[in-house]
């Protein structure tokens, strides 16, 4: 039996550089694979809706406005998102990216939590 087994750790820490991150003052390094908020690439999206179907938290809504003109609207609810990455996994076109997304998402109101993206309709040239 001994006393003060942690004394060496505690006293030693006095003479070491602090372990604490000086976070809000200095930005932290994040790993490459860190899953942040979802980034949608409208150009490659085919509007299949697999991401919305597989999302466990109903955070993605894909609305097909005009299928012929490839006109889609995507609504992403950050406040529901669980950042599991299944949408990225399900997307066959690679239109969704989560790695390296924004993660400092705190807000004082709910407004920024609904992102609406829209793919502009293709202009179909009429050849008659």
């Amino acid at each position: 039996m001994k006393f003060g087994m942690m004394f060496k750790d505690v006293s030693g820490a006095l003479f070491k550089k602090p372990f604490t991150e000086n976070y809000p003052a200095e930005p932290t390094e994040t790993p490459d694979r860190l899953r942040g908020s979802l980034v949608w690439d409208p150009d490659s999206c085919t509007g299949c809706g697999l991401c919305a179907r597989d999302c466990p938290a109903m955070a993605i809504e894909i609305e097909v406005i005009d299928k012929k003109a490839k006109h889609y609207q995507m609504t992403y609810h950050i406040d529901r998102c669980t950042f599991c990455g299944q949408c990225v996994e399900s997307c066959n076109q690679g239109s969704l990216v989560m790695e390296g997304g924004e993660w400092e998402l705190a807000s004082l109101s709910r407004e920024p939590f609904t992102e609406v993206g829209e793919r502009p309709p293709l202009v179909v040239e009429e050849t008659e």
């Binding site: 790993p31 950042f83 299944q86």
Partner: peptide
């Protein structure tokens, strides 16, 4: 976090 991309709830399985 560096392997899976999240500190908790790694969602490593499919």
């Amino acid at each position: 976090e560096s392997i899976s991309g999240n500190r908790v709830n790694y969602s490593a399985n499919v």
